[in-house]
Amino acid sequence: MTAQGTATVSAGRGEPLVVLSGVQKHFGQLHALKDIDLTVKRGEVVVVIGPSGSGKSTLCRTINRLETIDEGTITLDGKALPQEGKALAALRAEVGMVFQSFNLFAHKTILENVTLGPIKVRGTGRSEAEKRARELLDRVGVGHQAEKYPAQLSGGQQQRVAIARALAMEPKVMLFDEPTSALDPEMIKEVLDVMVDLAEQGMTMIVVTHEMGFARTAAHRVVFMADGAIVEENTPEEFFTNPRSDRAKDFLGKILKH
């Protein structure tokens, strides 16, 4: 899988949307990403799994350039990622991101968290942005909390608000960087439900997670990473029942035992 998508693609499910090609990244001595080639098609849900330190979060963060890359190219909808400045900010607006630690703006209410981007980045009017934000908050099931501050919500609620905040920008693709890793088991389900719902509605999603259940039910493709490289890619069905690489067999053996 190499960069086949330099031509502008603007519509149609199944066309390449995010294309990583020959991506290399070092953290000092550590070779964090080794020659990564990955194409994510429009409407596709790709789950990235792998042991800690395998580079899956780093991979996720390079796609909206929260991490810079040393070599290779990343294109979104046929356009290469800009280096810095306004063009990069504009690109990030097209890419929704959900973090492990939610990162809701602590000094703003739930509603303000969701409307900040549309108002300041998109230039949407306040009343329209609020109307849309309330719809999104209702959709993720926290509509009645709109006037509260993030610290007053549970982790699961905060993460759902974070999803609504990202959706408010009407992104082309959503990145999830271990969205449920900081949550209690009972809150994990409410977040995953929202994500499954999103996947069913055709959102393009790249999900770094340890939730194998989510990978089985919602993913179109599983990407298995180890030591900074993509070791195996397959359909969830095939990957979980019949992993090809020893590294993946070893990993699945460890996590599926309990």
């Binding site: 991101m97 973090f99 630690s101 703006f105 900040l116 920008m169």
Partner: peptide, 29 residues
């Protein structure tokens, strides 16, 4: 927390916007 700036950048705020709207109001406190 660094995540606040990252979240600001992730929704498309420029460096100046994320300073003014996200970092400095919290830093002031």
């Amino acid at each position: 927390p660094l995540g606040q700036a990252e979240a600001g950048r992730a929704i498309g705020l420029t460096f100046a916007q994320s300073m003014n709207l996200v970092i400095l109001p919290q830093a002031a406190r």
